[in-house]
Amino acid sequence: MYDGMYDRTTPFDDRGAGTVVGAAFDDAVPQHVERLLADYLDRRRVEMIGLDPDAAELADSLSGFVLGGGKRLRPVFAWWGWRGAGGAGSGPEAEQALVAVSALELIQACALVHDDLMDASSTRRGRPTVHVEFARVHDAAGWSGPAARFGAAAAILVGDLAQVWADDMLHTATLPAEALARAGEPWRAMRSQVLGGQYLDVLAQASGDASEHRAMQVNRHKTAAYTVERPLHLGGALAGAGPELVDAYRRYGADIGVAFQLRDDLLGVFGDPEVTGKPAGDDLREGKRTLLVAMALDRAERRGDDAARTLIENALGDPTLDAPALDRVRTALGELGAVQAVEQRIAALTGSALAALDAAPIEPFARQRLVELAERATLRRW
């Protein structure tokens, strides 16, 4: 199982577990989020032990998954939504805002654990996925029944536990009741969008819908909404952002979120597994109908390039796709101009996102941080 080990070198003060020491949080949000999550998950694990010691295995798996990696991008965007709307950068209120936005990492965990199961992925961040690890436990113990079924059942429960605890963690933040009430709108919308987007993704794979429209709908709702748009909206709502700023946050967030996913699509085909934590070409093996694939197939059809179209279509959903075949697909994607087209779309979306911030009533220092975050999210390493 995930061992749940993590560093606790960031100090806590003696006012109680989870209180972060420091004058300001702006430059170390991921580290503070990490410690708040570790403390919260520790406390919830104690509850699971109270149910039955065996039930703690779910908590251990979730803790290992959440604390085993990740850039904490969603809480960071939410934090700058908070700061851009005038939220405090230090003190008790800021600490509690961090508690609230840290809950986004549990939503992320739910989405990834379930996504890995639906995609039959074997690794995540260079480690076995949750369903694979539980199946291995079943095998090692010699239990009855199919190990894969046990692994799938356990992964579903770990993902469900992550979502339940995300809601709980949000509402443990001791912020004014009106602030938490305002946060309800983006929180509810985000959860519905990510689940709806996930279904659209599954539907596209099953139906073979390789249209650009469907790919962008999946990007918009499955990824952009809960990666950037709604986290920014959540942070702004907690701080009392007005309609004009919320609108700017959402326009920026939708565009940067889609650009983030398009970069991820490129990394899924061309990325270095040492950097991405997943085998190169897994998106193709899983049959992902990405915008990259949609653009390539459209160009192949318009050019009458049946060989390229057949090559790409045969690669989609082929679990045996090997390195030479992947290289041939990569070459075809480049020659068809699909890679360049996706890069151009990323650049255009980034430009429109930054334009949304230009006229927004946002704190100038927060605007600059969001500009920097846009670059980090869309110009990741290959």
Score class of each variant (00 low, 15 high):
127 R>W: 00
184 G>R: 11
135 A>H: 09
111 A>C: 13
110 C>S: 15
144 S>I: 02
172 T>R: 14
189 A>Q: 15
141 A>Q: 14
185 E>N: 03
155 A>H: 08
104 L>M: 08
136 R>Q: 15
164 V>I: 12
176 P>A: 11
133 E>T: 12
98 L>E: 04
162 A>T: 01
127 R>H: 11
142 G>C: 06
147 A>I: 02
169 M>Y: 02
116 D>N: 11
130 V>M: 13
169 M>D: 00
161 L>H: 05
189 A>D: 14
162 A>H: 03
115 D>Q: 09
117 L>V: 12
166 A>V: 08
131 H>E: 03
156 I>V: 15
129 T>E: 12
161 L>D: 02
113 V>M: 12
101 V>T: 06
189 A>N: 10
148 A>L: 11
129 T>M: 13
117 L>K: 06
111 A>N: 00
180 L>E: 07
106 L>G: 04
152 A>E: 15
177 A>T: 15
175 L>F: 02
128 P>H: 11
168 D>F: 03
149 R>K: 09
123 T>H: 07
111 A>H: 01
184 G>C: 00
188 R>D: 12
127 R>K: 15
123 T>A: 10
159 G>M: 02
109 A>C: 04
129 T>P: 11
100 A>W: 04
148 A>S: 14
120 A>Y: 05
159 G>Y: 02
112 L>C: 07
129 T>Q: 12
99 V>H: 07
160 D>E: 14
148 A>W: 06
188 R>V: 14
137 V>Q: 15
179 A>T: 10
186 P>R: 04
114 H>K: 10
151 G>K: 09
123 T>L: 15
132 V>H: 02
129 T>H: 11
127 R>M: 13
182 R>G: 06
94 A>S: 14
110 C>Y: 15
